[in-house]
Design a protein around this nucleic acid. Structure first.
Lengths: 346, 346
DNA sequence: TTGAAAGCGTTACCAA
DNA sequence: TTGGTAACGCTTTCAA
């Protein structure tokens, strides 16, 4: 286990500042933390010395002595998905206002890395944690919470009610997506995504089911399961659709994620005369930036990533700073419909 | 400035372990750091107690006492660009082997955020820093290095030779891209990108110039400057190209970045009968994942992101662990050509 | 308003 | 192989 010496050079410490300014250590500390408690003249002198010496206070020692920290960890499920970057941006903005810094860790949908970073932030210890976990893989979280480190979940329901979380209303998102397609005149809907073990996708599907059920049988909804939610999965589905007889093809597709939608579009367009949106209208989910460039601009349910990050940071900060009065709660934010060419028929 | 109390609950400390195991504090420390120096029986007893109590050693105190840290910071220029995520993945893998953890910070091409994170890692202090900076904005870096915190630059040349850096060979990349188009039969090349203040793009352009100059006048190369390197810039260029008389249009385009290429393709395709690659062959740069989904698969110069991250981490670890024998050096890695449909004519 | 001194939780040294 | 103890650099009482 490598450990790196941090100070090979001579770094000025607070005691050096004290000596140079002709005051005691405690006074320098006060000058930094409670400027009002120190005489203006002294204050100015100390500040001058700090500048001259280039003194920077050691956050590690500060944390240890104060028993507190300003570092907040953000463990993201997959930073390649821009939604998590949006969340981190929102959280960062809110945290900065209260003097906290956010450090990112990318679990990359890998169980081991997720628990490695969980450990890291526990040991550090970080003041708190923003955690977008793998579905159903919350192990290790309780140990952190027992140490008094608050955790706010993103995009996942807490196992018990005694914890904060920020969620997107996936059921309603699925509902809105389906409603939109119905309004475009679609009558044979399909939902593409894997819904077995991923609650958010499950919810989106259920929302679509609800929208369709309101048509009292006038519309069909078929579930086309995928293995994952990647472009390849969409391509496979696109090919399967092409293989069907025309009358058996869906005329409206809700993809569980933008990437899947992109795959479907790509596969369907390359080898057929089917056209979007007139033969098939399609809508994705996430508003992933990578779809903005697509040749057929993709309609989508935009996740409120920025807002989710903001809300999560606010909850976390409240829990960190007012642990006693804080009441755990779950915030649910609404996605919104973004209509682009892939589904606009009228 | 909010500071959060870390231990609201009763967290077991090393002294608790010592008491429970009936040994001294130093022995517990040894059991953790130098197991060979402690009697097997004692070792086992201590480990048992650690398990029972759920003891986790406080990395802050450890850093302070040992004067060292295992945290390495990675300040990324723009995590929305998957190349930086690749770099971080490469660095993470290498760092983990030596017991270091990498924490990410996204400057998002914002000067203020960049210097905020620079400060954060300096104060922490982190054992070292991987730094993909804004072009020409290395301010604040010297202060860190003076404190003995090593920094390895990514995608940027150090201001002086006394520092490690990992670069991609952009000149050669530009050269290869141009050569490829020439081999496809293109005779009127254009380079799209803004080359004023961004050295990498400058180099790519110069590489293209070199390739063209080797044709002894048989081929023209035109520079189409952009404001930035985003999709919108590409769209604007695409439209300008459409406005030209056919004989004045380029038949081969080197885009400074994939996003620009996507924009050009989108603009050109929507409103014209021009076809890729037969009327215009186009190649991008970066191998950004967001281009993998494009309807016309984009040829590109793939940046060796993973390798760059690995190399950078190796340099950093060497500098951290063997400061005296370490020799600063700059590593240059080669991009490679990825030919897809957007430029394949034969 | 300032100074002195006791921690914070660990490491590392020196004796035993 | 173990125990005792002085750091590490800072915050925070409590007196002066």
């Amino acid at each position: 286990m490598a450990q790196t010496s941090i100070r090979s050079h001579d770094i000025p410490r607070m005691s050096d500042v004290a000596t140079a300014a002709g005051v005691s250590l405690g006074t320098v500390s006060n000058a930094l933390n409670h400027p009002d408690r120190v005489h203006p003249d002294t204050l100015q002198r100390i500040r001058q010395v700090i500048d001259d010496l280039g003194f920077v206070r050691n956050a590690t020692a500060q944390s240890l002595a104060a028993g507190s920290s300003t570092v907040v960890g953000f463990i993201a499920l997959n930073l390649a998905n821009t939604i998590f970057l949006d969340m981190s941006a929102g959280a960062e903005a809110v945290a900065a206002k209260s003097g906290y810094s956010i450090l990112l860790a990318n679990s990359g949908m890998d169980v081991e890395r997720q628990s490695t970073y969980l450990d890291l932030f526990r040991q550090l210890p970080a003041a708190g944690l923003l955690f977008a976990p793998m579905p159903h893989l919350l192990s290790g979280m309780e140990q952190i919470r027992q140490r008094g480190q608050p955790i706010v979940l993103l995009n996942a329901s807490p196992p018990a009610a005694n914890q904060c979380a920020v969620l997107a209303n996936d059921e309603h998102g699925g509902y809105m997506a389906a409603r939109h397609l119905l309004e475009q005149g679609c009558r044979r809907l399909a939902f593409a995504g894997y819904i077995d073990s991923w609650p958010p996708l499950q919810q989106r599907y259920l929302g679509a089911v609800r929208a369709v059920s309101e048509t009292a049988g006038a519309v069909q909804l078929e579930l086309i399961p995928t293995h994952e939610v990647r472009v390849e999965d969409g391509v496979a589905i696109g090919q399967r659709i092409l293989d069907r007889k025309p009358e058996r093809r869906p005329d409206g597709i809700i993809a569980g994620a933008d990437l899947v939608a992109n795959g479907i579009i790509g596969a369907v367009m390359t080898s057929s005369a089917l056209r979007f949106p007139h033969d098939i209208a399609i809508i994705g989910y996430d508003d992933n930036r990578s779809s903005w460039n697509a040749l057929i601009p993709l309609s989508t349910m935009a996740q409120p990533g920025l807002e989710m990050g903001r809300a999560a940071a606010e909850l976390l900060i409240e829990e960190m700073t007012q642990a006693d009065s804080h009441v755990h709660r779950q915030v649910m934010l609404e996605p919104h419909l973004v209509v682009r060419d892939s589904s606009r028929r009228r």
